[in-house]
Amino acid sequence: MNIFRFAGDMTHLCSIVVLLLKIEATKSCAGVSLRTQELYAVVFVSRYLDLFFTFISVYNTVMKVFFITSSFCIIWYMRHHRIVSQTYDREQDTFRVAFLVVPCIFLALLVNHEFSMVEVLWTFSIYLESVAILPQLILLQRTFNVDTLTSNYVFLLGAYRALYILNWLYRYFTEPGYSQWIVWSSGTLQTAIYCDFFYYYVVSWRKNERLSLPS
């Protein structure tokens, strides 16, 4: 494992920890899209089914278990926590996730490495992850809420994507025969969407700053 891959995994992990700590500390999930969080849970569950079939390393297993449990933990807070669930922007978070899930299912059935249950589900998870941030992006555009979704969360997610691209480049040049077109193309799309997300974040941050300036 190279340094880019490890740093990418760590920033991904930190982004989730930051979000959880924020929800726990402020007892608020305003500005956080439950739909995006649920899509991430679907992504992790469908991708990490191989926990039962293959063993890669202790690191790999621990990280997979962490991603699955932490995503369900966030969902639990937003749905069932007595105080946090009341701060959820239910009326604003209305993105139709079927528009993302259904095309991803079809694409995974058509374009995959091997037509088997586990492999198609893995491919589906790769496609779905690349667009799972969209409900969050729409919610941010609607509410211009930047207080709760901290700069740290957005920054860490963006850094995770950028580091994974560096990891692929590194592996491509150091590992003979290393090539994975599905992951590369989806990952590039995902990074592009995050750039968009980051753009809106900066715009709303500047807008808020202007509004809060003393006149």
Partner: peptide, 10 residues
């Protein structure tokens, strides 16, 4: 046939 890829990334 090509051996099943081991998906070692997260």
């Amino acid at each position: 046939a090509e051996p099943l890829k081991q998906h070692d990334e997260l």
